[in-house]
Write a protein that binds this DNA or RNA. Structure first.
Lengths: 208, 208
DNA sequence: AATTCCAGAGAACAGTTGTTAACTGCATGG
DNA sequence: CCATGCAGTTAACAACTGTTCTCTGGAATT
């Protein structure tokens, strides 16, 4: 079925990966709209023109990065929301999961946060669409929770969006305190947890 | 007292304003880290070297824009939170105020949203500091509300931060639907209102 | 009235950028 | 085994960048 692709395709994919990785690294301290094509190829060690074999432009590369960065988040969403024992425990587990993901993929998170409102339209749209997919996913998960009995679709989507945005903001906070002492990072986790808790309380009394 | 500054200083301030305005306009479709000094001076119609008479670098100009953009928001915060009759009415009024501010200063709002996580460190820090001041201000306002009886300082600041972030996110949503039909903009306002309402409900039951 | 000051102009600098064209070598499919 | 395809190279292009130094005209100070 899965035709083992030849030596040729393998090499191409390898350079493509190298380009994506180099770009992601360079984007740690600048934004996509200032990322030069030559800058990327220089970092990889290939000729500038080789870039065009893989991407039409740096904006194109950016869109590819969006898919990559947010696809890795979908499994996290799943495991965060699925089992529903104690509400507070679920929240602390979610915050820990976010902290772990940020620690494991800081560049991806930074990229999304930076380019969500960045200067490159196609990339903004790609991020917006992916986040909307996220919200739909969370909404579907919420709908199965018995606590959501009586909720209409609009309100469920509103709550899902609130959760998604909250997750992203929490991730950003962890990113900013990445090199800070453990103590401060714990304080951030603490505040994020309380925010989520307040939202959950609001959720519980929504139908009053 | 206020020494009327001479013709000389007046002209200098005029060019400075022109530089800031031109930069802000250019930043509508790119980010600060890709904004060139020559680009700005060309738009104003002065020699590139004139730039240095006003700013050390484009990053420096960015910091000046931050002060300008966020200072104009402080009065809004005040009028939003001060009188406290009906909770729901206060929320809809706040959302309307945000919509108005975005319609009146779209470029400023876009700039803040874009550069909050952008590629220029000094600007990120300036925005972070100003937003922290905002949160403190909101916290002080909240503390006087009788509904905040029994709240400790940490929780008050947590809630204030939540409100501030929510305001900014709402502003971003209005920005994205700026050219969209009136109907969609009303839908955004509707969802934003419900979000705020849910948070307010959580606030009311926080001490249970 | 003579002097100082300084916002802005002008020219030149070494480097950088995206994009084009024609090329090379090698894995691939007939 | 040979011809085709195609990832990556090389060279060149016009245009652009930030920064330096020197200069100028006119307001500000004395």
């Amino acid at each position: 079925m899965s035709h083992t692709l030849g030596v040729r395709q393998v090499q191409k994919q390898k350079t493509r990966r190298a380009l994506l990785d180099a770009a992601l690294a360079l984007l740690e301290e600048q934004s996509l709209s200032s990322l030069g094509l030559r800058e990327v190829t220089r970092a990889v060690g290939v000729a500038p023109t080789a870039f065009y074999r893989h991407f039409r432009s740096t904006a194109d590369l950016g869109v590819a990065l969006v898919e990559e960065a947010l696809d890795s988040l979908h499994p996290m969403i799943r495991t965060t929301l699925s089992p529903a024992e104690d509400s507070d425990e679920r929240i602390t587990r979610a915050v820990d999961l976010i902290a772990g993901h940020v620690a494991a993929n800081p560049a991806h998170v930074r990229f999304i946060a930076r380019e969500r409102h960045g200067g490159v339209q196609p990339v903004r749209e790609a991020i917006r669409d992916q986040l909307a997919r996220f919200a739909e996913e969370v909404k579907a998960e919420l709908a199965e929770d018995p606590a959501s009995a009586g909720w209409n679709d609009d309100d469920l989507l509103m709550l899902a969006g609130l959760y998604v945005d909250q997750m992203l903001m929490t991730a950003c906070l962890f990113l900013e305190t990445q090199e800070a002492p453990e103590e401060e990072r714990r304080r951030v986790a603490e505040v994020a947890t309380r925010r989520m808790r307040l939202i959950s309380i609001g959720r519980r009394h929504w139908l009053d």
